[in-house]
Each structure stands twice: as structure tokens, then as C-alpha cells.
Design a protein around this nucleic acid. Sequence first.
DNA 1: GTCCAACCCTGACGTAGGGGCAGGGTCAAC
DNA 2: GTTGACCCTGCCCCTACGTCAGGGTTGGAC
Lengths: 256, 256
Amino acid sequence: MPHDATAYEDPRGMVLTIGQLAATAGVTVRTVRHYHHVGLLPEPERDASGYRRYSAQAAVDLIRIRTLADAGVPLARIDALLHARPTEFAAAITGIDAELQRKIDQLTEYRSRIAELASGERLVLPPEVVAILDRMRALGISEQRVRLERDAWILMQALDPHVMPQRIRDKNAAFDDPETRRLYLAVDQSVDWPPNDPRLDRLIEDLDTWETTHEQDTAQQPGYLRLVSSRISETSPSWQRIVAALTHRAEQRRRS
Amino acid sequence: MPHDATAYEDPRGMVLTIGQLAATAGVTVRTVRHYHHVGLLPEPERDASGYRRYSAQAAVDLIRIRTLADAGVPLARIDALLHARPTEFAAAITGIDAELQRKIDQLTEYRSRIAELASGERLVLPPEVVAILDRMRALGISEQRVRLERDAWILMQALDPHVMPQRIRDKNAAFDDPETRRLYLAVDQSVDWPPNDPRLDRLIEDLDTWETTHEQDTAQQPGYLRLVSSRISETSPSWQRIVAALTHRAEQRRRS
DNA sequence: GTCCAACCCTGACGTAGGGGCAGGGTCAAC
DNA sequence: GTTGACCCTGCCCCTACGTCAGGGTTGGAC
């Protein structure tokens, strides 16, 4: 059978091989076959050796598909879109464009959040609470104690979020009072005192007075705060003594 | 077994259920379980009924994971990242941030490409070629003919890209010549003449003269352009006659 | 005390958009 | 005549979960 020197013989413009088509559109061969598989791009005819042969129109179609796919449109939607009438198509394009803008805004926000990853709590807690924790640090309270406080706020946020605003006000007011600040710091420093240190007796006395004047009742606290108390106890024997003594005195007051 | 009114009894701060934890971090319950499955978040202990119970620290960990995951970091990489030392972590964060910026730029470009989707060829062909096609339209050449021309350019780009610049210059020079413009238009208008129309004889004569003066040889063209010729032939009987006549005359000149 | 919704559990399969083999045929050039 | 770059089909793998199915638990209302 005589042969005509050139490979471009098919009478209907089917000249590109799958590799040439893919390169033209900037995709992989696998991608083109995938689009055939899902019916997004029609299967072209085959040449004598079973190779797919594509027309220039296929290149246009493929690039239109990629343009939409790159913009994040699911393949299933693209199929419908390509067969839509111009008005509907234009409407869809407008929507997709808005979606893209939304994604850009999202990414911009993620970018700024990424920058804050170094410090753990800023991401988890509202800024007012972060300010309170920073205030504790500025007072000289240990990081260990601040972390316990942070956990209390996280649990509160998860379990009892509606009390947050009031608690934030209360806590800030408390730290405006010099006696409160003094007691916080004293408790913090007592962490490595021995449980029978005489200074502890004095501190417990002061704390009990503070609780009665501030109408705080340890036994009335919600469960998660009692839990935080128990974690405080675990931290050191002296703190365990403080928590136990205050709880005991509060119970006694309740009975009377 | 007596019970204590509140559910927060575990001594080690394991208080949140999986749903509460998920809500705190803004993810689904399924996502948390998935992270356990892939070992990204450690499995917490279970309460008496087999429910998972989480600490506040788990919330911090989960939100850190999500912050990275939202930024597009694969889960497999997050695992390593969370255990990295601060300097390495900071370096990785910088890289991720750059990657995010790149994505934002990408999306911005996709946005502008989406806007051009209405017209097919702008995405596929370089602007110089689009200008040529627009020039043909401005001359009054039919859209059918322009599309054939467009396909020729697409095939050229895919199969023979290095000749593009020269072809672009040639084509623009050709359209600077009034006689060339006249002939293009005349051929275009002849599309629905009968093949035996006497005006066709005159037109073929003019085209042959043009070919010889412009040193164009139809038989020397690359295969894909011959193919486009064959598609032109298919469009109408009169065009078929033109192509056949010109090919025949070119052959005769070659033999002599 | 019992009913109901809203939780929780495990396990298994489905999804998009391909990647990456295996195992084989074809084409063009040297 | 062989080498390297293509092409073919078919099948399993991947990520980051979603979505059943089929059950147990909890907490509050009646």
C-alpha cells in the first residue's frame, strides 16, 4: 500500500496526537484520558494503529476546560457549563469569579494566621482573654500558672461560652485591685514552699478573707473550674494544701 | 456506684467530648477521628462508656493543626512540623507563607483568564495571532473562514511552533497589500457560488497570479496546512474547485 | 419510668483529580 | 535492527475527609 510521506492524512482535521494536544494545553496525557473517561472531552477517532487523533477544536475545548478547572470548578460542573447557553454561562462565570475572590481573601487571612503560629493561645482565644494572660505575665506570674489559667479559659469557651464576657470583666476588675495582684503573686511564689511552711498559714488566711469579701465560693464553681483547681493541686504540695484548706473553709461557711 | 452530679470527674483535665473539641476548633467530628487514625493527634483516654475525653491542650494542638492544614500543608508534613525545633519550624513557616502568596497570585491570574473565557481563541493563541484574526473579521471575512484560519494557527503552534514569528510577519505584510485583501474577500464571498459560475474562472486566474508573484507553493506546504486546505474544500463546492484548480496549476509548474 | 433527640462508637465504602505502575504495540532515526 | 520516545488498556494508590450502616449512651421532658 503506497504511503504519502506525511502523517496528516485523516480528512477531518484529526492531526494531533494525545501528547501534542496535552502539551498544547499544558496538561499531562493522563489528564486528557481522564477527561475522556469522565465524558468531559469526547473521545476522538483513532488512526490505523489505534492512536487517538485530535482536531484543533479539541485544543480549544481542552484549554477552556482547564481554565475553568484551574479556577477550582469541579469537573462535573464544567461539563454542564460548556453546554450552557451564553447568558447562563456568563452568570456562572460571574459566580465563579466571586468564589475566586473569596478564596483569595481566605488565603490572605490564613497567611496572617500562619504568622501567629509561634504563640499558641492567640489562635485559640479571643484577644480580650489573651490580654488578660499577657497581663498576668507582665505581673511576673509564672508561665506554668499562666498555662493553667489559659486551659481554664479554653474549657470555659468550649463548655460555657456565654459566661465569657462577664468573666473577662470580673478578671480585669480583679487585677485592677492591688491586694488581688499581691495574692496572685504570693500564691505563684509559694509553689515550691514546703507544705508546712508557716508563711502558707498566713497566705491561706489572706486568701480566705479575699474570697469572702469577693463573694467567691470555690464549691459553687462549675465542674471544669473545679477540675482546673485539681490540676493546680497536682502541680505542687503547697498548692494542694492551699486548695484543700480553702475548700474546707468554704464548706464550713455553707453549713452554718 | 454513687455518682457526683457533674460529668467532669477525670482527674487529669480530660473533659471535652469529641464533639465539643471539634466545635472549638471549627472542624467536624469525622476530621478529629481522621487525625487520630493517621496519628496526627494522639488518641485520648476513654471514659467509663468508651467515649473519648480531651484536655484543653488537645484544643490548642488541634487548632495548630488546622491552621497549618488550612494553609494547604499536607497532613503528613504537619506531623513532622509540630515536632520540629523552633528554628526549623520558623523556616518552614516562612516557606509556607511564600507558597500561600504564590497561590494568591495564581488565583488572581485565573480570575483574569476566566473573564476571557467568552472568546475561545484569546486563551489558546498568542495576542499577535489574535490580532490577525481580528483584522480578518474587520475586513468583513466570514466567521466560518476565520475559524478555519484559527485552526490552522493552533495546529501550527502545536506542531511547528518555531515558524510562528515568521508566519505572523508574513501574514501581516500580506494584509497590508490591497490586492491580497481583495482576493481574501473575493474568495470568502464565493463560498455559495455554483462551481461553474464564470466569476470563479476569473478568481482562480487572479489567485494563481498572486501565488506565483508571492512565491507560494501549495504543494510545498506542511501537511497540517494541506489538511486545512482539505477542510476548506469540504466547506463548499466552489471552494473545492478553487483549491483543486490551484493545486493542479502548481503541479504543472513544478513539472516544467 | 420511659421516651426522645442528640450524642457517641466502630467499620467500611465513596469521592475528585489524577499518579504510577505493568505489559504491550508503534514510529522515526541512526 | 535497535534504541528511545511515543502510544494503548487496565488496575491499584493517594489525600482528606464525607457518608452511610448498625449500634450504645446521656440528659432532659413528660
